[in-house]
Nucleic acid binder design. Structure first.
Lengths: 111, 111
DNA sequence: ATTGTATTTTACCAAGTACTTAATTAACCG
DNA sequence: CGGTTAATTAAGTACTTGGTAAAATACAAT
């Protein structure tokens, strides 16, 4: 019943707030309040977003006095990169099709 | 209120069934019943998954007699690839850190 | 016209999401 | 200690998701 790693990652990335938080963390570790500032949202809401990102392994949280600095963890992003890489041939084939090359026909019904 | 393109794409990919359907379509266009076979799920359920994938632009559907052949559309996957590419430096930096190089310290609090 | 096959739509339900406000924990500082 | 700041937990609400069964639609074949 626990969602697999890929699902957790994609699910976390499906939220614009989550992606914005990651983008912010790309420029360095920071606190929760700092992360919350750009958003018109209460702290608990941000806290929940962070929990989702953490469960997906996309961030980690430290402890420094009363602050919980968040850090970007890129492992799952590499997995996403690897996953999507498999489909590269399809968009590259599309690029070739646009520039005028022949395209294969798929005979899906004559099994 | 309509979710942006990236969110729709990631959201569709967050579902293992959706990803499995895409994987199947990578080996060629096929009908809905054919797509449904590997899953322990009713047709309407598959139909809904296809609608999600279609709204995300990840598949397109044709019309051939009573069949609605589905085809993989890789455009949004290229967008995912482009998006994740920005974070490449983080997992590569991680690889370097593991192989014993020095790592920069982030001073997040001394704003 | 009737029957069969492929697919979608509708209506419904249980579980999950995405917020809110209010209360709580934890640590610092006078 | 008591007050402030940082962050989480709890409880509640509105909305969305992911599935079902049953009916409807669309076309093909007889």
């Amino acid at each position: 019943m626990p969602p697999d790693q890929s699902s957790a990652t994609f699910s976390a990335l499906a939220d614009p707030t989550g992606r914005a938080i990651l983008a912010r963390l790309a420029s360095g570790e920071t606190s929760v309040t700092e992360l919350a500032k750009p958003f018109d949202m209460t702290m608990p809401a941000i806290s929940k977003h962070l929990k989702v990102l953490e469960r997906a392994g996309l961030i980690s949280r430290g402890r420094e006095a009363q602050w919980r600095p968040c850090r970007l963890e890129a492992g799952p992003l590499k997995d996403v990169s690897d996953w999507v890489e498999y489909y590269r041939r399809f968009w590259e084939q599309l690029a070739r099709r646009i520039s005028g090359e022949s395209c294969g026909v798929t005979t899906w019904r004559n099994q």
